[in-house]
Nucleic acid binder design. Structure first.
Length: 958
DNA sequence: CAGTGAGCGAGCTTCCGCTTGACTT
């Protein structure tokens, strides 16, 4: 039955797909009678935070998780805030339809979206599940003609995955807040990604370079050369007296030969001596070996390979690639860009083959279409490979595109066309040349070449290489046509020194490749994984390299030591296997989750759940147990790394620093480590340098009055100047002398402040005079800015300059005015919300330390994230107050009372934050390149935010 | 991570995967 005959019956069908662009295309294939609309991804999810948890669950201990861990891990689902309108639209469309087709992607997530749609839309008309893997008219019409049922087991597998990720992320992250720094995060994917980067850096730190030498000879055939037969060839020394000369690959990461007996390690002296001994030797061709060469085209693009190639060839980051691809997709130039499949539809194969013939000739077209087996182990293959759309590919010139879109399209087009072309063939040749040195040793040189006789797919496309020195596939290297026994003259023999290099750092593209190989992450998330670990400050970019921060060393260290099972590289792969079993009905979700969360030995535990080892034998502790008792996690230990010579690097709540000796002991030293220092660059020497001259100090000179040195520093509350007291000045005890200090004015900055400024600032507080009763009035600079102080009576000043200029008369005039209460108190409420129905008091919105809040004069409640001062309704205000009253006043435990002291400081920190960021930016800019600057500024900005919060959080790391 | 003066009370951070705009810079 065709769609049109159905329409004739007058039925109207609603088809829901995931992507609006897809909806648009499909609409054209289905014709009238079908309404096609998109869900625009997932429509429901677990609540994000407390604000999204429905009121009836608010009091539950597990509400924070959004999963009832006490009752079979029942999830709470809420319609995503940004999907409310879309859901409403879908409901309206459904009301006018006689049949519903859930046409979401055919993978785990797509099945779940379909199920959520069904749950939310509550259709009263027949519901069908329809699936297709390619968007062609035939495929769509076939799909609509043969719908199936919703696969609830697959939905279960998705839900299990979702719950595991939530439990992992929301249980482990708080451990990091307590033990390392607030706002950090851990997750199944990001933590392993971070660990990979850290582990690579550890290898680099442990790496010991090896030096080795060899010889390069330029040999002459004695014939005049031409393009196909050059007259010289360059060959490298391969062996001496039959013993192979050591090359880079013969050395281990410890700088030693892997097998010293098998190879000859030449040092500089030996190499030079051999070169000299070969200076007058005569050489001849010992052998010529020729082998056929053959290379097959690369598979069409999937998400990861597109990201890698766009990085290598176009210099795009993963995010940029996806953004450009999205535009191409939306405008109908390419197929869907988030895919793990390399399969081309028949339509696409035909289009590619037609284009091969047309552009390169039939000679380049293989007899049969090429197919590419899926390389990706957990591929869900819901989509095609990434290719030009349509049944006839537009050449790049025909698209009318320009800029990045043009370049990315061209890349995709070439790769797709090349994937349906013939192999490249040719010959690879190895020539061995021998000569006898004056000391009698036999030296053998080798040279290898490659000629391509038929370029095949290389006519259209050659893959890029990560290593700039690597040879591309299509590079020819011609050797002279020589045969065994031909005499050769050595024109030049030189000794060359080499050093082994540490393993290269990951780039965005190579990390994504690694993650894909380990089955971690999905096409839709690869780019955002990079974004997450950058945002958290776990890694930063140096050129294209991803460099782990010291912070990430501390985090990974903690996770490896205490959550080893969770950051095991095979955790996700093992989880995937289990999820597949759940999807097949061979395992059940609840026992599996129970085992993960509560551990082994709980009743009904299913076998096999992601148990890759912490090496703790039989007992498999559940996640719950691990996050409950944190006593075993020594915050100081996990964030300490020995540098050498008694110096330790520590990751504190304010960032990394180096330290020598115990705090408050003789000879204790401490210095900040720059945020953008690569861990493998922290040597003992550099640490000594940092300790000798603490970073952030600007020496301004000597105070002529006291002889004390004056420095400008960047402190907890912003930039300030202070004096350095001479050695031996008691810092503690009753004779303690405290150095004079003063905050910089807002108009000053750390790197421009002068000694003169500093001395003037340190004169503060200034005595302005005394009032009629003889009480002294002083002018000071405090945490709320400049102010006057008379006994306990203080008054704010308008400008910092007034601290120096205000006269006694002016001060007295200010005191003659009634005291202005604080700014907030003096300010009228932001908004009035009428009278609260419960307390019958007037409700107003005020601005406070923690942002806007509603109050009836008795109960206060902070506005939630989704509330807005402008739009808040009186009803919402009463609701917030009612919630707050229900919750009761905060318990005044010892811990809370202690924490209470901190917020007072926070306001000051907030105030100086902007100044501070600006100051740091400029100082950093001096030392770094433009590229670094952005990273540094970003890190600084983030760090400042972290500082604010850190002030309020309980201190643990130090 | 210096050390000062007042106001008013905490609440939230965090995961992975599906999708696009709606925002600002």
């Amino acid at each position: 039955m065709s769609p049109t005959s159905e329409t004739a019956k007058g039925g109207r069908r609603l088809v829901i797909v995931e992507s609006p662009a897809k909806a648009k295309t499909i609409k054209g294939y289905l014709g009238p009678g079908y309404v096609v609309e998109a869900s625009v991804g997932h429509i429901r999810d677990l609540p994000n935070g407390a604000a999204e948890v429905p009121a009836k669950y608010k009091g539950e201990s597990w509400a924070r998780l959004g999963v009832n861990v006490e009752k079979d891990f029942q999830p709470i689902y809420v319609v995503n805030h940004d999907k409310k309108d879309q859901v409403k639209k879908l409901k309206e469309l459904l009301a006018e339809s006689d049949e519903l087709f859930l046409a979401t992607d055919e993978d785990r997530e797509g099945e779940a979206i379909a199920w959520h749609l069904q749950e939310v839309l509550k259709p009263k008309v027949p519901v069908r599940r329809m699936v297709f893997h390619e968007i062609t008219k035939d495929a769509i019409q076939a799909a609509v003609a043969s719908p199936r049922e919703l696969n609830k087991k697959l939905v279960d597998a998705q839900e299990t995955r979702r719950i595991l990720d939530r439990l992992y992320g929301y249980e482990v992250s708080p451990v990091l807040w307590k033990k390392v720094m607030p706002r950090l995060s851990a997750g199944r994917v990001q933590s392993v990604a971070t660990r990979l980067v850290v582990e690579r850096e550890r290898e680099r730190i442990a790496f010991r370079s090896a030096e080795y030498w060899d010889l390069t000879g330029i040999f002459d055939t004695g014939r005049p050369g031409d393009n196909s037969d050059p007259s010289t060839l360059t060959a490298r020394l391969a062996s001496v007296d039959g013993k192979r000369v050591a090359q880079g690959r013969d050395f281990g990461s410890n700088g030693r030969l892997k097998d010293a007996a098998q190879v000859l390690h030449l040092d500089e002296a030996n190499a030079r001596a051999l070169a000299a001994a070969l200076a007058d030797a005569s050489f001849a061709v010992r052998s010529v070996e020729s082998k056929p060469y053959r290379r097959s085209p690369y598979a069409p693009f999937r998400t990861t390979t597109l990201q890698q190639e766009a990085s290598r060839k176009l210099g795009f980051g993963a995010k940029a690639t996806m953004q450009v691809a999205q535009k191409l997709y939306e405008n109908g130039f390419i197929t869907y860009m988030r895919t793990d499949s390399t399969t081309l539809s028949d339509t696409a194969v035909n289009a590619a083959r037609a284009q091969v013939t047309q552009l390169y000739g039939a000679n380049y077209l293989p007899e049969k279409p090429r197919t590419y087996a899926g390389k990706v182990k957990n591929a869900q293959e819901a989509h095609e490979a990434i290719r030009p759309s349509g049944d006839r590919f537009r050449t790049p010139a025909e698209t009318g595109l320009s800029g990045d879109q043009f370049r990315l399209y061209e890349l995709i087009w070439k790769r797709t066309v090349a994937s349906q072309m013939k192999d490249a063939t040719g010959n690879s040749v190895t020539v061995r040349i021998a000569g006898r040195a004056s000391d009698g040793r036999d030296a053998e040189f080798t040279a290898s070449g490659k000629t391509i006789t038929f370029h095949g797919f290389m006519k259209a496309y050659v893959e890029g290489a990560d290593d700039p020195n690597a040879e591309l596939d299509d590079r020819e290297r011609r050797l002279p046509q020589v045969t065994e026994g031909d005499p050769l003259a050595a024109r030049e023999i030189t000794a060359d020194g080499h050093a082994t290099k540490p393993p290269a750092r990951y780039t965005e593209a190579s990390l994504v490749k690694e993650l894909e190989e380990r089955e971690i992450g999905r096409p839709s998330t690869y780019a955002s994984i990079i974004g997450t670990i950058l945002d958290r400050g776990y890694v930063f970019k140096k050129g294209t390299a991803l460099v782990p921060s010291f912070l990430s060393f501390a985090v990974v260290n903690l996770l490896e030591k205490h959550f080893g099972r969770l950051v095991d590289y095979d955790f996700t792969a093992s989880m995937e296997e289990d999820l597949d079993r759940i999807a097949r009905g061979e395992a059940q979700a609840v026992p599996w989750l129970r085992r993960f969360y509560f551990g082994e030995g709980t009743e009904g535990a299913a076998g096999g759940a992601a148990e890759a080892g912490n090496g703790d034998g039989d007992h498999l502790g559940g996640l719950k147990e691990l996050v409950t008792d944190l006593g075993a996690i020594d915050a100081r230990e996990v964030s300490s790394f020995p540098v050498g010579e008694g110096i330790v690097l520590r990751v504190g709540r304010y960032g990394p620093y180096v330290e020598r000796g115990e705090k408050d002991s003789e000879g204790h030293q401490r210095a900040d480590v720059p945020d953008d220092l690569a861990p493998d660059e922290l040597t003992v020497e550099y640490a000594e340098e940092l300790l000798a001259k603490p970073s952030g100090d600007f020496e301004l000179g000597t105070d002529p009055g006291t002889g004390h040195q004056i420095v400008a520093k960047d402190g907890r509350y912003g930039p300030y100047v202070t004096e350095i007291l001479p050695e031996g000045t008691p810092k503690t005890g009753k004779n303690a002398v405290k150095p004079r200090t003063a905050s910089l004015f807002k108009s000053m900055s750390l790197d421009t402040v002068t000694l003169e400024d500093a001395l003037k600032l340190m004169e503060l507080p200034r005595t302005v005079g005394t009032d009629a009763e003889g009480v002294e009035i002083t002018a000071q600079n405090g945490r709320y800015g400049p102010y006057l102080k008379k006994g306990t009576d203080s008054r704010s000043l308008e400008t910092e300059e007034q601290l120096f200029t205000i006269t006694l008369d002016e001060a007295l005039a200010i005191y003659a005015q009634p005291k202005q209460r604080g700014r907030a108190a003096a300010k009228p409420p932001l908004k009035e919300l009428g009278t609260d129905p419960v307390s019958e008091r007037p409700v107003v919105v005020k601005d406070g330390r923690f942002g806007p809040y509603v109050t009836d004069g008795e109960t206060n409640a902070t506005l939630r994230r989704d509330d807005d001062v402008e739009t808040i309704t009186p009803e919402r205000g009463y609701e917030l107050l009612a919630e707050k009253r229900a919750k009761g006043p905060a318990k005044k435990t010892a811990k809370k009372a202690a924490a209470k002291k901190a917020p007072a400081k926070k306001t000051a920190a907030k105030k100086t934050a902007a100044k501070k960021t600006a100051a740091k930016k400029t100082t950093t800019a001096k030392k770094t390149t433009a590229a670094k600057k952005t990273t540094a500024a970003k890190t600084t900005a983030k760090k400042t935010t972290a500082k604010k919060v850190a002030a309020a959080a309980e201190s643990a790391a130090e």
